[in-house]
C-alpha cells in the first residue's frame, strides 16, 4: 500500500500561494523513504516556506505523521531554481 502524499502536499500548497496553477508536486520513493518535491512560482516560494520555515516545517510535520502510519519517512523539499 502506497499512500499518496503528493495529493496532501498539493492540497495544502495550492491554498498557500497566489498562483495555484503553477504548483507541481512530484515524488519518488526508495527504501529510505518518500521524497516529495514541490515546485511553485518564484514569487510564491516564500509563502510556502514561511517565516523561519514555519509553514514548510508544519507541512513536514503533518506529512511525517501521515507517513508514520506506513512506517515511512517522508521528506518534503521546496524547489527553488
Amino acid at each position: 500500500m502506497k499512500p499518496d502524499y503528493t495529493n496532501l502536499v498539493k492540497y495544502c500548497v495550492e491554498r498557500l500561494v497566489d498562483e495555484p496553477d503553477s504548483v507541481s508536486v512530484d515524488s519518488r520513493t526508495d527504501r529510505s523513504g518518500a521524497y516529495i518535491n514541490v515546485t511553485v512560482a518564484p514569487n510564491d516560494v516564500g509563502k510556502v516556506i514561511g517565516r523561519n520555515g514555519r509553514i514548510v516545517n508544519a507541512l513536514r510535520s503533518l506529512v511525517s505523521s501521515v507517513g508514520a502510519k506506513q512506517r515511512q519517512r517522508v521528506y518534503v523539499k521546496v524547489v527553488s531554481d
Partner: peptide
Amino acid sequence: LFVSPRNPVLDSLQYLCNAMYSR
C-alpha cells in the same frame, strides 16, 4: 496520528491550517 503527548503535530497542523484559512 496527529495527537500524542507533548506532540506538536496538532499545533503544526493548526498553524498550517490558519495559514491556508487566512487566504
